[in-house]
Design a protein around this nucleic acid. Structure first.
Length: 559
RNA sequence: UGCCCGAUAGUAUAAAGGUAGUACGACAGAUUUUGGUUCUGUUUGUCGAGGUUCGAAUCCUCGUCGGGCAACCA
């Protein structure tokens, strides 16, 4: 099944699009409603963005709507802080929900549904302890058997369930179970628990309830109440689907349907909320929005754009097979976008002073394009003077093969300025290079070069006198191995010990004094950067979003 | 040992019985005042064995491998 015209290349439909188009074509639905159902017990990560782009994207594509529904049935792990962060992240990604809803909005209806099931002999109150329940449940290969309490009368069950609601029992003393089949090969059908007692305060309903429904008794019915047409979730819920359908069928309510896709995994990181929470709590990172975290807030702070993440979600596709996406695809997406929009700047991380011996003591302002990829952007004036900083690694006394940078007696171009030549190397008593004496070719000025010379390398530079300083955070991948969750032992043993490198004082061209939050920069030959949220006028702080592709690093490694 | 999913280049993802294609990566070259960008080219794949068919990645059978399922989590 494909769409597209001669003008646009044919794009095949993913399996969800095929299902939706079939449902629309057959007249089963006239419009679709999806939902994004996060549990407010942690921050959203890049894996969620796949689900968000899917649920919202499908609705947009087919003219439907998407609800944001917080799956808040477990009061002890859920907090308002997470609700707020989740909303912010979804909006930042560029999506707007039709309704902001909560599973807890339905606690009254759900209670009535449970009573209905009891009345029809399809649910019972069980006094067994959690150990006893587990014991009688059997195992995937051996059938379970029913609890002695399963034979209570409807009246007794009703009475007991209401007493549960009214707080007559302590936590764990009783549960309400669906009466299905203790011998089912599907463990979820072995009389699943519908309600448990938790004398806990809920972030929305406060102290109103002391019994709370479990996921299986809340999710499908919530979908049904909202008339969600396509309830899209991840693969681990496949085995829950018969139960999802069972409740809907027995309750005789709107038949939402569940479809499952494979969750996103990214190389060199972890994607489980539990593990991410551990990284935060045990201070391996600075917080949920640490730029090394695979959270949406982490990527945002690091300088990723919503566009790039949406493109990424589009490119990884949707399927039902397990996957481990190469992080280089994400990096490709952000580089592709930033290359188009980032303002070019020159910044020196590890300065080496050079003196242009034949240049006057004056300042000359040189013009440079803000973004060669976008003719719509302007140019800026950069001060050039007798004393400059270049990157220390851009000079070599014993240049390796194919070294196109500066060395004694060799010429290079200074970006948007002149061709220079290194005449003399000055060292201190320890032999460390402290300064280079160079000369420039006045007739080689950028834009009006009449020198006729061709040089192989172009370096970035800043004027010593005019440079401003900034702190720069350079990030590397958080883990040393591709799939930390799949390694022997604790995933934390595979954390990259040098995932953060801080440049205390980087020397920036003066125009960066006006750096703005949210604006993206390319530090020429270094990478893409943005202001960190902790940056201030007194102290500029930049985060490196991603490096530029560096083919020289590869070449140098080979040598 | 039971049930349910799944298996196409290194990683993802198309091909709905009819030429195995695309992206990322890797490699090579061209262009380049960013060793960036852009452009060109190359490389590598249908898990295995049978069967149906003129023809199978696709349908059937049996294997193999990977994942999920035994929370009062979602």
């Amino acid at each position: 099944m494909t769409t597209g015209t001669k003008d646009s290349p044919e794009k095949s439909l993913n399996f969800l699009e095929e299902i939706i188009e079939a449902d629309l074509r057959s007249g089963k639905y006239h419009s679709i409603l999806t939902r994004f159902p996060p549990e407010p017990n942690g921050y959203l990560h890049i894996g969620h963005s796949k689900s968000i782009c899917l649920n919202f994207g499908l609705a947009i594509k087919y003219g439907g709507k998407t609800n944001l529904r917080f799956d808040d049935t477990n009061p002890v792990t859920e907090e308002t802080e997470y609700v707020e962060s989740i909303k912010e992240d979804i909006r930042w990604l560029g999506f707007e929900w039709a309704n902001e809803l909560y599973a807890s909005d339905y606690f009254d209806i759900l209670f009535d549904y449970a009573v209905d099931l009891i009345r029809r002999g399809l649910a019972y109150v069980d006094d067994s302890s959690s150990d006893e329940i587990a014991e009688l449940k059997g195992t995937p290969t051996t059938p379970g058997s029913r609890s002695q309490y399963a034979s209570r009368s409807i009246e007794e069950n009703l009475h007991l369930f209401i007493a549960m609601r009214d707080g007559k029992f302590g936590d764990g003393q009783k549960v309400l179970r669906a009466k299905i089949d203790m011998t089912s090969s599907n463990m979820h059908l072995r009389d699943p628990i519908m309600y448990r007692i938790k004398h806990a305060e809920h972030h929305r309903t406060g102290k109103k309830w002391c019994i709370y429904p479990l996921y299986d008794f809340a999710h499908g019915q919530s979908d049904s109440i909202e008339k969600v047409t396509h309830s899209i979730c991840t693969l681990e819920f496949v085995t829950h689907r018969p139960l999802y359908d069972w409740f809907i069928e027995k309750l005789e309510i709107f038949a939402s349907r569940q479809f499952e896709f494979a969750r996103l995994n990214l190389s060199f990181t972890v994607m489980s909320k539990r593990k991410l929470l551990q990284l935060v709590q045990e201070k391996y990172v600075g917080g949920w929005d640490d730029p090394r975290m695979p959270t949406i807030s982490g990527y945002r702070r690091r300088g990723y754009t919503p566009e790039s993440i949406r493109t990424f979600a589009e490119k990884v596709g949707v399927q039902k097979r397990d996957n481990l996406i190469d992080v280089s695809l994400l990096e490709f997406c952000i580089r592709e976008h930033l290359n188009k929009i980032a303002l070019r700047k020159m910044v020196i991380f590890d300065p080496l002073k050079i003196v242009i011996t034949n240049f006057s003591d004056d300042v000359e302002f040189l013009s440079s394009e803000d973004n060669p990829e976008d003719p719509g952007t302007g140019r800026r004036e950069i001060p050039f003077s007798r004393e400059l900083f270049i990157e220390r690694e851009d000079f070599s006394e014993n240049p390796p093969k194919k070294f196109f940078r500066l060395s004694l007696g060799q010429k290079v171009r200074l970006k948007s300025a002149y061709i220079i030549q290194c005449d003399k190397v000055i060292k201190d008593e320890n032999g460390k290079i402290v300064e280079l004496l160079c000369s420039y070719l006045a007739e080689s000025k950028s834009g009006s070069d009449i020198s006729g010379l061709k040089v192989q390398g172009t370096l970035h530079w800043v004027s010593v006198k005019h440079a401003i300083t900034a702190e720069v955070f350079l990030y590397d991948r958080l883990f040393r191995v591709e799939d930390p969750s799949n390694e022997e032992g604790d995933f934390k043993d595979y954390i990259n010990p040098v995932s953060l490198h801080v440049v205390k004082a980087a020397y920036c061209e003066p125009s960066l004094r006006n750096a703005r939050f949210g604006e993206r920069y390319q530090f020429i030959r270094k990478g893409y950067f943005c202001l960190d949220r902790t940056s201030s006028e007194e102290k500029l702080i930049f985060n490196r979003t991603v490096t530029l592709k560096d083919t020289w690093a590869k070449e140098a490694k080979k040598q």
